[in-house]
């Protein structure tokens, strides 16, 4: 029994990371109807940036976030203004194919630079620290910290979207990009900010996951798919939906992994397909 509770807690906590991947996708889809196929590879890229920062400056990966998050935000802004903005229009093929091309470029670029070796970020004693809730139920400090950060990030994004000037601009551009320009909004800049924010969030999640799980240049697509599944499972109505989606995905994976490690990821995919079959609008909303 306690084993099951531990497993479910594990799943919930890792679900927070998936939710952060998802919220990054949901944000840019919401603002500019862009689905970035390279999302997962950018998540992995953030882990490699953290690897360089930790190795060259001798920092703990958690501290390296101070550098990695703004670096990825900047990369996001540049990518959007330099590349994705040129693809935005009525035709959905250009953004899709350009981001797919970018995905392949990042993957193979990382392969050239870092080889196909498995890596992990080492965070020191915090990795094994646990909090004891009862004799049988232990919760790792790091997973707990990750989950708390995920909740804060998602709550923060929700507040940013509905309570700040930039959130207002995001919604206005999303509603009607043509008219938004008449308010004095430079859509290209707004799109750039949305992508910067998206990548800043996934950089945080990408680094946190890289402390817990191995990564290599080819892991990007899996990260993308986890985020995507969390978005669809949760429904596109609010950022909190992605948290629920991420947690469900995490729990399903954790339970399947205790049955057979080979089933872990497959079970997550199947859960997603089940939701698609029986509740395509997601568990908590409508498909936009």
């Amino acid at each position: 029994m306690a084993d099951w509770i531990n497993t479910i807690i594990q799943g919930i906590l890792i679900g927070g990371l998936y939710a952060m991947f998802a919220v990054g996708l949901a944000l840019i889809f919401g603002v500019m109807k862009l689905v970035n196929i390279a999302h997962g590879d950018l998540i992995v890229l953030s882990a490699y940036v953290a690897l360089i920062v930790t190795q060259s400056l001798g920092l703990n990966p958690l501290v390296s976030l101070v550098f990695v998050v703004p670096i990825m935000g900047l990369i996001g802004y540049i990518l959007q203004r330099g590349l994705f903005n040129r693809t935005i229009g009525n035709d959905l093929l250009p953004p899709l194919l350009v981001s797919f091309g970018l995905s392949v470029i990042i993957q193979n670029g990382l392969l050239e630079l870092f080889s196909a070796d498995n890596r992990r970020l080492l965070a020191g004693p915090i990795e094994v620290a646990t909090i004891k809730f009862s004799d049988a139920i232990n919760v790792g400090v790091l997973p707990l910290l990750q989950f708390v950060l995920a909740v804060l990030v998602i709550g923060g994004l929700q507040a940013l979207m509905f309570r700040t000037a930039i959130g207002r601009s995001f919604r206005a551009v999303s509603d009607d990009p043509r008219i938004a320009q008449l308010m004095g909004l430079n859509n290209r800049h707004i799109f750039g900010l949305a992508m910067a924010l998206s990548l800043a969030v996934v950089a945080l999640a990408g680094v946190l996951l890289a402390i817990r799980a191995n990564f290599d240049p080819a892991t990007g697509p899996t990260r993308l798919i986890f985020g995507f599944e969390a978005v669809i499972i949760g429904g596109l109505s609010s950022f909190w939906g992605t948290l629920v989606g991420g947690v469900i995905l995490g729990v399903v994976q954790a339970i399947a992994a205790t049955i057979d490690p080979g089933l872990q990821i497959l079970a997550g995919h199947l859960a997603f397909l089940l939701v698609l079959a029986f509740r395509p609008q997601g568990l908590f909303g409508r498909v936009a």
């Binding site: 862009l34 689905v35 196929i37 959905l92 953004p95 899709l96 797919f100 697509p221 899996t222 993308l224 798919i225 995507f228 599944e229 669809i232 080979g262 990821i265 497959l266 995919h269 199947l270 997603f272 397909l273 698609l276 395509p280 498909v287």
Partner: peptide, 22 residues
């Protein structure tokens, strides 16, 4: 998959291929 539009269809098709691979 036809329940997913545009780019979401693309990623959905990828999930199906991953299900096959796994």
């Amino acid at each position: 998959l036809f329940r997913l539009r545009g780019a979401y269809f693309a990623i959905g098709s990828w999930v199906v291929a991953e299900v096959f691979r796994l």
